[in-house]
Simulated scan of single mutants.
Amino acid sequence: MIVILGGGYAGLSALSENSNAILVDRKSYFTLTPWLIDFVCGIRNETEVKAKYPKVIKGEVSKIDYKEKRVIVGETEIKFDKLIVSLGHHQNLPRLKGAKEFAHKIETFEDAVNLKSKIETSKNIVIIGGGATGVEIAGNLRGKNVTLVQRRDRLLPTMSTASSERARTLLEENGVKLLLGTEALEVKKNSVVTSNGEIKSEVTVFAGGLKGPSIVEDFGHTNKNHRMIVDKNLRSIDYRDVFGAGDCATFSNEDIPMSAEVAISAGKIAMRNALGEENTFIPRRTATILRVNNFFFGDFGNSYIEGDMAKIMRGLAYVQSLVLPARGVNV
C-alpha cells in the first residue's frame, strides 16, 4: 500500500497516478493556494478556491514509524509499503521581530479568510515582500493606502527584468507606495519599523520567507530549511521506501522551485517511482503569470509575455487546478 501525506498539488497529482493509494490530510478539502490572493482581494469566492477531496483520511499525523512502516493519524494506524511526503510549505514568520504576533500570513484558506476580513475594515496596509505574492496583493487592493516594503532593489527578483519593470509601473500607477532596497526590521501592532523609518499600518501582510513544514525535521528527515532532502528520483536520502514531492522536498545541491506547476510534476514522478519505476525528476517551471487589476503579465520560459496570451496561460493553470481533485477518484 502506498500512503500519501498531504493533499496539496503534489499529493493530488500523486493520487491521480494511483487512485488506490491512501491520502492523508488534516483537512477535508483541497486549497487552490495560488488563487488565495484573488479571494483576499475579492476577485474569487470561496467555492472557486476550495474543492472537496475525492477521498481522504482526515487527521493530523502524530508519528511515522519507518522501521515498522506505519503512520499514526490520531487514533488510527496506517501501514504502508511506500510513503510519499507532500506536506507543502510554511511561512517563516518568526525570523522577523514581531511578525508572529502582528503580521498576517497567507498560507491556508483560514489565513485568507482572516486577512480578507481585516483588510475590509482597514485603510492602511503594509505588505512585506516584493515577490509574486506581495506584488499581486498590493496590485489588487482597491481603495486602500498600500505600502510595499522590499529588501531587494527591484520587485520580482526571481523573474525577468521585463516582468519586474512592468510590476513596478503597474503598482505605481495604482498608487502603491514602493519602498525598494528597504528592510523591514520589526512589526508592531500598528506600524512597521523599516531601515528607512516607521510606517503606520493597520494590517501588515508578510508575503515571503517560505520554508518546509517543521514536521519534516520532527520526523527525522535530513533537511534544508525544513525541506526534506531527496535524490534525483525524489527518494528520501534517509529511507529508501519514502519519497518527497512538492514544496516540502528539495535536492541537496540545488533547490527545487516552490510552485504548483513543479509540485504537480513532482507528484507524478514520486508516485511512478514508488510503484517501481526509476524516473529522474527534472524541475521545470514553464510559466509564472501575475495579475494586477485586469492586466496579466509574466514569464513564459525565457520570454516576457503580457496581455491576452498571459491571460490564457493564467486561465489554463486555474483550470488544471480545478481538474486535479477529480483525477484522484476511483474509476
Rank of each mutant, 00 (worst) to 15 (best):
K63P: 02
V85K: 04
R70S: 09
D65K: 05
A103T: 11
H89T: 06
A51V: 09
L96T: 04
L87A: 15
I78M: 07
L93G: 08
G98A: 12
K97V: 08
R95C: 06
L87F: 13
V73K: 09
V49S: 03
G88D: 06
K63I: 07
G74Q: 05
V73W: 06
R70H: 02
D81H: 13
L83V: 10
E101L: 04
P94G: 14
V49D: 00
L87S: 10
A99D: 01
R95N: 03
Y66R: 08
P94W: 13
V61L: 05
V56N: 00
A51M: 07
K100T: 14
L96Q: 04
P94Y: 11
K79V: 07
A99T: 02
T76I: 15
P54Q: 02
K97P: 00
K69C: 07
E46V: 15
E48A: 10
K63Q: 14
K63H: 15
V71M: 02
K58L: 07
E101Y: 00
V56W: 00
D81L: 13
E101H: 01
L87Q: 06
F80S: 03
N92S: 03
V56R: 00
H104C: 14
I64M: 04
E77H: 07
Y53C: 13
H89R: 10
A103H: 01
V49T: 03
Y53L: 12
L87D: 05
K82Q: 10
Q91G: 01
S86W: 05
I78C: 12
H90A: 11
G59A: 15
G98H: 09
G59C: 14
V61F: 03
K50A: 08
N92Q: 03
F80H: 02
Y53D: 04
E60R: 07
E68L: 13
K58V: 08
S62M: 13
T76C: 09
E48Y: 07
S86V: 01
L96E: 08
I64L: 08
E77S: 12
G74R: 05
K67S: 01
Y66K: 13
P54M: 04
K55Y: 06
E46I: 09
K97W: 00
I78V: 14
E46L: 10
L83W: 05
V71R: 02
K67F: 00
K58A: 06
V56K: 01
K58F: 01
K52W: 03
V73T: 08
D65G: 12
E60A: 11
I84E: 03
K55D: 12
Y53F: 15
G88N: 08
D81N: 15
R70Q: 05
D65S: 14
R95G: 01
E46H: 11
K50Y: 04
K100F: 03
K100V: 11
P94L: 14
E68P: 00
V85P: 04
I64P: 00
L83H: 06
E48M: 13
I78G: 01
T47N: 15
S86N: 08
Q91H: 08
S86E: 03
E48H: 04
E48N: 05
T47H: 12
N92H: 11
S86I: 03
K58N: 03
G98I: 12
K52N: 04
Y66W: 09
K52D: 10
I64T: 01
L93E: 06
L83R: 04
L87H: 02
S62Q: 14
K97A: 13
K79P: 07
R95H: 10
S62W: 09
N92T: 02
K79F: 07
V71Q: 02
F102D: 01
G98L: 10
K100Q: 11
F102Y: 15
G88V: 02
